[in-house]
């Protein structure tokens, strides 16, 4: 079940547009904020709030890279895999991340902390290789920097 807060926020978003459907991506993101991904049950509830069929909403949800219809880890890593990052050493960073986390691209670590996903150009090509962890952007990556960043997410208190 969606919380009252989620419902209220979705309704408020829908009110910004002439047609409630226009708020559907925002609604999916609101639900992901709390649940990280969008389950079938939540999808149906959102669809009902926005006057859409669940099928129509699902076809939109699956169109976008940042809407997850399967469970993801606590932190989603989006590794930029476009041309400028490749030129600047993407493959080394990818190999390091895979080894460090013990997962392939598209997988979640066994402790549920991280999901590693390749991502289309993040638009920071002058400072590649680049990745996002959650909403944070990290650039000019090297192996040490990656380790340092991941450690921060493992032990958020800095401990």
């Amino acid at each position: 079940m969606l919380t009252q807060d989620e419902r209220n926020r979705i309704r408020a978003e829908a009110a910004h547009y002439d047609h409630p459907q226009a708020a559907c991506v925002e609604a999916l993101k609101i639900v992901q904020e709390h649940h990280r991904w969008v389950s079938d049950e939540h999808l149906k509830e959102i669809a009902a709030l926005l006057d859409m069929s669940p099928e129509a909403l699902d076809s939109v949800a699956t169109f976008y890279n940042l809407i997850f219809r399967k469970p993801v880890g606590e932190n989603v890593i989006l590794l930029c895999d476009s041309v400028s990052c490749w030129i600047m050493g993407y493959e080394g960073i990818r190999a390091h991340l895979k080894e460090h986390l013990g997962v392939e691209l598209g997988e979640t670590t066994s402790d549920g902390k991280f999901t590693l996903l390749p991502m289309a150009c993040l638009g920071t090509c002058d400072r590649g290789p680049a990745m996002m962890v959650g909403n944070e952007l990290y650039r000019n990556l090297d192996n040490d920097k990656v380790d340092e960043i991941l450690a921060r997410y493992r032990h958020p208190s800095g401990a």
Binding site: H16, Q21, I67
Partner: peptide, 27 residues
């Protein structure tokens, strides 16, 4: 003036894809 944020899809940069996306459809 309304800020609308997408959800990751290169093709939404194409002008008519963007329009569909803005309406809450597949881009």
């Amino acid at each position: 003036v309304t800020v609308h944020v997408g959800a990751g899809a290169y093709i939404c940069g194409e002008e008519t894809g963007l329009m569909n996306s803005l309406e809450g459809r597949r881009g």
